[in-house]
Write a protein that binds this DNA or RNA. Structure first.
Lengths: 216, 216, 216, 216
DNA sequence: TATGAATGAGGCTTCATTCAT
DNA sequence: CATGAATGAAGCCTCATTCAT
């Protein structure tokens, strides 16, 4: 996804050209980094272009050499976050032969840890999504991966007789994802206090129970 | 809760004079009703005081005779919503002797129906909560009732040997509430399409499964 | 023509409400008057909203209570000018029985005097028309009256055998109007120096010659 | 006239270095050509330096190696246009012994055809003149040639008894020039529809009538 | 109490021109 | 000479809130 590819259906008019110089690349990166700090500090709505530019130590106008709007940088910030997560090994598919219950726990723990690490940004993203439909989409796509994988796993388990066959895999996947992400939001972004391990355990148990997965 | 009692720590302002005469009461009501329509139409952020006043067929200045700010009206609107729900019999505690599974289903259905009916306002409220911490509180308090009751019920079931004793009742209650409300949000406010009955059934089954409640 | 009725085909969104109070009317008038002075002083393009507001001794924001943009005020200024001209008796149709040649001279003199009196504004209008197609229309409509009347007169003369029958009345009217207005522009707005009376006489003679009207 | 000699009263800057190498010449020409396209497309005011450079496939900075400002290029574009016209044989003085009436017609036709061919640029030039006094001068000088020649011709005709002796040759020349150019502007730049030949005929007849030239 | 106009702080964006490479 | 990113001054406009009638 390109930074400004937010699927608005708009002609996406001037769209700052991609960086061609080393200097340009430096400024671009500085802006993304600065933007991240500002979004974490002030939230999506209260973040001001001027502040981002200042934080990156460039003139206000320079911002527009690289991004066309607040949405545009924010999308870039999220994209970079995504990249970092993948590289940091929020691994996709290593729940190979491990016993199932353990697999669920690992996935949940990884998700929650990542959420905790990026709580500030996640809060900003929730705000963005609440305010700008474009980010509802982004959020949707972010979770889609997890939901699809979960749905597939659930269907597989059902076929193996290891999960309640009455459940609709798709909706179930959505529901359980929603549960985890919302709990993460409440805990890490809003600061409701729950011990991390209790969180992981409860969530995992609810997840496996909900599917009626046999406890190893 | 008075409209302006948003937990600012300030002592609530004396109720504005507008409410004491008959004319005042009429204007006040008109404003709340108008505000609701505007919030539903434009969302919390894009709602403008001028529009609310216009919709209520009242001068802009009159708004401030009755409310001190946008937050203030919005709180009033939510409060009125709460009242309506209670009167409409989104009953609190009649899951007396009915069989348990049925009780859960009824509760979920009622919740989802109510959400669907007020989807516009709920969307606005999510926005408000994303933007103004005061409404995080309001939202929290709104769900607290349900969470507390659920937590109590879960603890009770556990003691009766009817629910997985390993689960922390409080967190479990939060988690399952989050699951339902978030699903409702996605479906009714964001418009992801899921048939209503499938929704109710899946949610109910997940809920009972998660607790390992016997399907009598 | 209403001030903002510039025929853009746009929905003309917020369009400040017409004034309802005496105070409002005062401010509105002050703004139009101020705008006129500023447009005359700075031209259309260099006129700034802030300056207009300042000149009218109101806050910048107040401008937008009455007008939605620079175009909007400018249209209002032109409209007021139009009104003044009509009231000032740039009379429409008193070329009754006077001898023809004299009628043409009077019309030209009146036009040129009026142009001289409002030279600053006319210059601004030329600028506006050069820059914003909306004002091309306005200018067109302003001249349409004169052109139509002239065309009718020419046709009439032709039928009476008093004007060259080979000329297309419509285009001729346009051409002669263009000639006079452009000369007026060059003289009064751009300051090319020509004695006023010479101007009137030459123009009149050219006009009557062009039509081959009999002298007296 | 050098590109930057817009009559600012300043001594003309030394011609920028860009023009001395072969590469420089190429870039220079590319810029002028590009500028012309952009001015035609966007008008004088909306033309952006960046766009001109881009259209010329040259870096923004390079623009300033060859021109000092937008006015500067525009002057160069106009100068080049002038050159083209001369080469294209918008002949200056071959109305030698042809019969008079025919001479006027040819001149008008040539002028109107040229205007039609360069309508885009002429529109831009009107805009430039409306916005920047320097181009009022340029426009003035452009027409001066025609006006002077016409004035001389008129005087000559008067002395030969072939034109109304009451007319001031100078003002008459201005007036008739204004008439033709303004009509051309309205027709070709603003798009008012008049058949080309009707235009030529009417204009010619008005011109000869106005002078009371005998229709041999 | 009601009215509706006035206030003014605050953020966004553009683009001619400069400058480091 | 070319490159293309950086600069920063300027103007526009919105809207919550206040205030004179």
């Amino acid at each position: 996804m390109l930074p400004s590819d937010l699927g608005t259906g708009q002609p996406a008019q001037p769209r700052p050209a991609g960086t061609r110089t080393r200097r340009g690349k430096r400024t671009h990166d500085a802006l993304v980094a600065a933007a991240r700090r500002i979004f974490e500090r002030d939230g999506y709505l209260d973040a001001r272009i001027v502040d981002i530019a200042a934080e990156a130590k460039v003139a206000t106008g320079s911002f527009y050499t690289h991004f066309s709007s607040k949405e545009d940088v924010f999308a870039a910030v999220l994209e970079r976050l995504q990249d970092e997560m993948l590289h940091a090994g929020v691994s996709d598919g290593d729940d190979e032969r491990k016993d199932l219950w353990r697999g669920v726990e690992d996935a949940n723990r990884a998700y929650l840890e990542s959420y905790r690490r990026n709580a500030g940004l996640m809060a900003a993203m929730e705000q963005a999504a609440a305010v700008d439909p474009r980010f509802v989409r982004v959020r949707l796509e972010r979770s889609r991966v997890f939901i699809d994988r979960s749905a597939a796993a659930i269907a597989h388990l059902q076929q193996s007789g290891l999960a309640d066959p009455e459940l609709d895999p798709e909706i179930t996947a959505r529901a359980l994802s929603a549960m985890v992400s919302r709990l993460a939001y409440a805990t890490f972004a809003l600061g409701e206090s729950v011990p991390f391990d209790t969180l992981v355990e409860t969530v995992t148990r609810l997840w496996t129970n909900a599917l009626c997965m046999p406890r190893d």
